[in-house]
Amino acid sequence: MIAFIEGPAWYAALTIFVVFSLWRLGWVLLMGGDKHKSPARASAAAGAIRNIFVDLAPRGAFLKRGKVWFVALAGYAFHLGLFAVLLFAAPHVDFIEQKLLGFGWTPMPYWGFIVTAEIAFAGLLLLWIRRFVDPVTRLISRLDDHLAAGLTFIVMLTGCLALGQQSVFLRGLHMGFVELWLVYFPFSSLFHTFTWPLSRGYSGALFGRRGIRA
């Protein structure tokens, strides 16, 4: 079983992830756009870059609203925590070295892992809970949003349960959910991982071209 999960299943999941992600990205990019644009006041590219890489904190005017703080803090806590764990947890570094890239890097110390995982968990939990109890997010959330949050949560959780690293079963469980997550990823709202620079870029280009906040 574990051989299957770590062998064929892993490669199958990875393939689905890559193929359909490329399909979705390609589809969006190849849809095309307006041919004619009115003369720009300033650089669209600069605006796009600025919106993708620089303006990443909520604008001051919105910080008067508690929910904006909440989503920003919980959102960053979750995302940064998740990426840190994903890339720097010792077993992940080992895995990347052995199965993916052939080289690794210095992992986080154990306590670092615990703290980051806790931050990520707290962020995800708070955001997911709000989906249910805030009338706004309750109205707009799709089944997909709950599945995406739920799967991510389970992946993180099984990962932490397998921390002891002496149970093949727990390791397999974690891997299994990771594979499920990878398969679900290209079809779900998890895909915002790849589309956010596009959507922020397009809006940024509009701001840039029009010289907004020049």
Binding site: W27, V28, L29, M31, F62, R65, R131, V136, I140, Y202
Partner: peptide
């Protein structure tokens, strides 16, 4: 087009737009 499609593909239903 690509622009509108990128928007459609990115929403995470955070509800901040309401704010």
């Amino acid at each position: 087009g690509s622009r509108a499609a990128s928007y459609m593909e990115s929403c995470v239903r955070c509800g901040l737009c309401a704010e």
